[in-house]
Computed example of a mutant assay.
Amino acid sequence: MKAVVVGAGIAGLVAARQLGSAGWDVELIEKSPGPRPDGYMMDFFGPGLEAAERIGLYPRLAAVAYQVEAVDYVDGKGRRTCSLDYNQFARLAGGKILSLLRPDMERAALAALDDVARGRVRISYGAQVSRVWSDHDGVRVTLKGLPDAPLAGDLLVGADGIHSTVRAQLFGPEDEYLRPLGMRAAAFTVPGPLLDERFRNRFVLTDSIDRMAGLYNLRTGEVAALLAYRDSTAAAVCRGSGDARERLQGEFAGLSAAVDRVLEACPEHVYDDVVAQIILPGWQKERTILLGDASGAVSLLAGQGASLAIAGAALLGDFLGPVASADGIRPALAGFEERWKPVVEEAQAAGRRAASSFLPRSKAQRLLRRWVIRASRVPGIDRAVARRIVGSH
């Protein structure tokens, strides 16, 4: 059995690994020239962490995790306004939690391919899809520059992100499924140190209105930055543009001295995109299945994108691993979607709820957020905070 996986992000890498470990031959196609360097610090917990333990990926992730002590909200002068202890956050999240830089997570998943799928997965970086076909006889993928040599297989996995080419060609235009949440986000790293010593091992978030900057000191001596802000044009402009650096400097200038220093060092090319979800009525078509952000992006507001990517990819491997003939592919895909879609939809609902408070619109909303964080230590209230932060997982 042979699978073609489009997209070597976290979902695609884990899906390729699990299929390869089950005896499938896998062609993994990625348009980027190599593992992507851009990304932000994120919390990894819930179903993805459980799946990572089950499939043997957890040790590699734990090896590159950061030891975060707290999340500190600071005002324009760098003074703490409220703080969330990370041990408490881990408890609210249901136990274990890892803090990971997205590029580190992707590289760990890449390195883990040889753990169980040695020789079964072939990766082609810098290979851009031009056309895909999927019918009852199989799948074919044509790459730009190689129109006369299409890849053929029994299964196609579209794991190529929120702006999926596979989805656009087989399921319809992006604007039919993309649901912007009225914000944009950017992520990049800059040379440090730009944060003072009192914020070592702590996430620093600006306690601001309609925009937020999150900063963290990395073990490399750099600072990772995540910037989010309201943008009424988000529905019309989904992809980052060449003026991202100038736009970010205009949006965030004066937020704090630390943010101003980060903006001065902002690279010309950064991750910059709309904060959005993908809402699809169905994820499968003939022998094609969409996975990860391509099928059900939850947005960074839900805090579970990487977790769902790994858990979903592992579950897909569970359903497809035992398949020994082409006749078993479509029933396996149907079973996967039936099992996994409700989980993703619940996470998306949590993300939409979080959107209302992620960037306070007024001083009153900002004060309410401070109160909620401070009250999160109170028994009973902590459970309500947990539902707000992590949903039911």
Rank of each mutant, 00 (worst) to 15 (best):
V4W: 02
G12N: 08
A15M: 03
Q18T: 02
G23K: 10
L28A: 09
K31E: 15
S32R: 11
D38R: 03
D38C: 07
Y40S: 04
G46E: 00
L49K: 00
A51P: 00
G56E: 10
G56Y: 11
P59T: 04
A62T: 00
A63H: 09
A65L: 03
Y66D: 09
D72C: 12
Y73C: 05
G76A: 14
R79F: 14
D85W: 03
N87S: 08
Q88R: 15
F89Y: 13
A93Q: 03
L100G: 00
E106L: 06
L110P: 03
L113V: 02
V121R: 03
V129W: 04
R140K: 11
K144A: 06
P150R: 04
L155D: 01
V157P: 14
Q169E: 14
F171Q: 12
G172K: 07
G192D: 12
P193G: 11
D196G: 08
R202I: 10
L205F: 13
T206D: 14
S208M: 06
G214D: 11
R219Y: 06
G221C: 09
V223Q: 11
A225E: 07
S232T: 06
A235I: 05
C238Y: 12
S241D: 08
E246D: 14
G250A: 15
E251C: 15
F252E: 13
S256M: 12
S256L: 08
R261F: 10
L263M: 14
E268M: 05
D273W: 06
V274C: 13
G282F: 03
W283M: 13
K285Y: 15
R287D: 12
G292I: 04
L300M: 12
L301R: 01
G305N: 03
S307L: 00
S307R: 00
A311T: 01
L315W: 07
L316T: 02
L320Q: 01
S325Y: 01
I329C: 08
L333P: 02
G335E: 02
P342A: 11
A349G: 15
S357K: 13
R366C: 14
R366L: 15
W371Y: 13
R377A: 12
G380F: 07
V385H: 06
G391S: 07
